[in-house]
């Protein structure tokens, strides 16, 4: 009971620099400041997604850089672009995921289901399948 009232006393939170407040107010869409621990946990989860997307990007760069003697140019470029695209979508999606979670917490609403999780899983499976087909079809 007492913990519930604490979230309502700072509906127009002070102590923020005016420039940051304008952007935040526009992006976060009202509500009340959640517990700082939840905001930080959301930020760390976002950063974990960003590192995942960077791993995809790094994988794409590596495929283009290291497999020129292994695959024909079309195959190499297909796999590299697929990985880079997957990294791009994951990075963009992780920001909107972070924003939606933060908005939900500001309105004490249930947290949204992560859309980027199935996208990443399906994308990773597609890249792996493409690689398997190319490796099997490659002349020995």
């Amino acid at each position: 009971m007492t913990g519930h009232e604490e979230t309502h006393d700072s509906s127009h939170a002070g102590g923020e620099a005016p420039d940051r407040r304008g952007l935040s107010a526009w992006a976060l869409g009202g509500g009340t400041e959640p517990d700082a621990r939840f905001t930080l946990a959301n930020e760390r989860t976002f950063l974990a997604w960003i590192r995942t997307s960077l791993a995809m990007v790094a994988g794409g760069i590596a495929v283009e850089a290291f497999t020129s003697e292994l695959f024909a140019p079309e195959i190499r470029k297909t796999v590299a672009v697929l990985l880079l695209l997957l990294g791009l979508v994951t990075a963009g999606g992780s920001f909107f995921r972070w924003l939606n979670v933060e908005r939900a917490m500001r309105h004490q609403a249930p947290l949204p289901v992560p859309l980027i999780a199935p996208i990443l899983a399906a994308g990773g499976a597609i890249v792996a399948a493409v690689l398997i087909v190319f490796v099997i079809g490659r002349p020995a």
Partner: peptide, 9 residues
């Protein structure tokens, strides 16, 4: 009071 860091993310 701590507003989420929209600019950094």
């Amino acid at each position: 009071a701590m507003t989420a860091n929209v600019r950094a993310t």
